[in-house]
């Protein structure tokens, strides 16, 4: 997990330096703010990963000498087929089109989105682990 943390911290550190240089050379706000946001985008998850990496045992994927059986057991939850992403996509497109053609497509979109959310929640109570 340490390397993953370092990759993200590298993002934060690089943009911290660039942000500082850019601000003192240009005093331009929009670019500085975007660089600052990018800096946080690196430091926040990177810091979280680093915090965890110091408190957890190396995972099998972090161990160069790990055996295959070290990775046995539940890997994660992988749902099977589901129609709800498609339905949610339809609803998002419908809501989006309301910005072009008027509010009525948003009503359709929100109703469809609500059904999709309920569908996903019900679906999540079935099915299994890999």
């Amino acid at each position: 997990m340490k390397v993953e943390a370092y990759v993200l911290i590298f993002v934060g550190a690089f943009f911290a330096v660039v942000c500082g240089i850019y601000w003192f050379l240009s005093y331009e706000t929009s670019g500085t703010l975007m660089l600052l946001g990018t800096c946080f985008l690196g430091f926040v998850p990177g810091g979280y990963y680093y915090w965890w990496s110091r408190r957890m045992k190396p995972r099998p994927e972090d161990d160069p000498q790990a055996k295959r059986e070290d990775g046995e057991g539940v890997v994660g939850a992988f749902p099977g087929s589901s129609v709800w992403p498609f339905v949610l996509g339809v609803s998002a497109a419908s809501v989006g089109l309301s910005l072009v053609f008027g509010f009525w497509t948003a009503i359709v979109g929100f109703v469809v989105a609500a059904s999709a959310v309920m569908g996903v929640i019900r679906e999540s109570r079935r099915g299994g682990l890999i």
């Binding site: 890997v75 099977g80 299994g128």
Partner: peptide, 19 residues
């Protein structure tokens, strides 16, 4: 592995899913 466990029963193989 810290992926949230959402489901509790085995799912069928893809071969048995929609076609």
């Amino acid at each position: 592995m810290t992926i949230a466990v959402e489901r509790t029963l085995p799912i069928p193989a893809e071969e048995h899913g929609p076609t």
